[in-house]
């Protein structure tokens, strides 16, 4: 029979995974809206962010209630502390999707100055990072979380590449500046999404093995 503590933890987990699904879906759709100049979809993404905002508050409340009423210890305590932080990271990813959707609205259906290749790649990596970080939580698999941390380098590299490319576009013609800036913003936003996913992976490692690996060089992570 599940204890009340286990049931409370399970409830938080369910909500947290729902948040993660919403965040990954929002990132995917936001890049699609940009790629296809789909203004209706962009508006939908902005509207749906409210669900994530509400979930964030609910999860925080649930974690605080868990700490106060169940006084968790060891892995249960680490779970509550990790979820409080992961919650913020995931909500920010939701905000990132909203910001990308806002850039779609700003571009307002104007033909894109170049076909989008690396931005969707960045989005795919960010989504994979979030999914893998959450898989590491559900399977208590530290190796999966470590792999997420490595993937962040790929996304950083792509961001830099996109910036260089768009900088060239801007130098070539003034008319490209506005859209290039929008796309640079989108790439930067996706790079931030990768950072948040990396944070989730670091908190997952703290939850699973009690080790705080933040601010360590990759070689220092055991």
């Amino acid at each position: 029979m599940q204890t009340h503590l286990e049931m409370d933890i399970e409830q938080i987990k369910i909500k947290m995974f729902e948040m993660a699904d919403l965040a990954t879906e929002a990132i995917k759709l936001s890049v699609e809206s940009l790629k296809n100049a789909d203004l209706i979809l962009a508006k939908e993404i902005i509207k749906n962010d409210t669900r994530m905002d509400l979930l964030e508050i609910e999860i925080d409340d649930d974690c605080i209630r868990l700490i106060v009423t169940r006084q968790p210890a060891a892995s249960d305590l680490r779970f509550a502390l990790a979820m409080l932080k992961i919650n913020t990271d995931i909500e920010r990813i939701g905000d990132i999707a909203t910001n990308i959707a806002k850039e779609t609205l700003k571009i307002n259906g104007t033909p894109l100055i170049k076909p989008l290749i690396d931005i969707p790649r960045m989005a795919d990596i960010a989504i994979k990072m979030i999914q893998q970080a959450f898989a590491s939580i559900s399977e208590k698999d530290v190796e999966k979380a470590k792999a997420v941390i490595t993937m962040d380098d790929e996304i950083d590299e792509l961001n830099l590449q996109i910036y260089r490319e768009l900088f060239t576009y801007m130098c070539e013609a003034n008319r490209n500046i506005s859209q290039s800036l929008s796309l640079i913003m989108v790439a930067k936003a996706l790079e931030r999404a990768g950072d948040h996913a990396k944070n989730v992976a670091e908190r997952a490692i703290y939850y699973i093995q009690g080790e705080d690996i933040r601010h360590r060089a990759p070689g220092e992570i055991s």
Binding site: A73, A74, S75, L77, R78, Q209, G210
Partner: peptide, 11 residues
């Protein structure tokens, strides 16, 4: 002991 015990039984 209360955040990361070494033994599973303690946990």
């Amino acid at each position: 002991i209360f955040t990361k015990p070494d033994r599973e039984m303690t946990e």
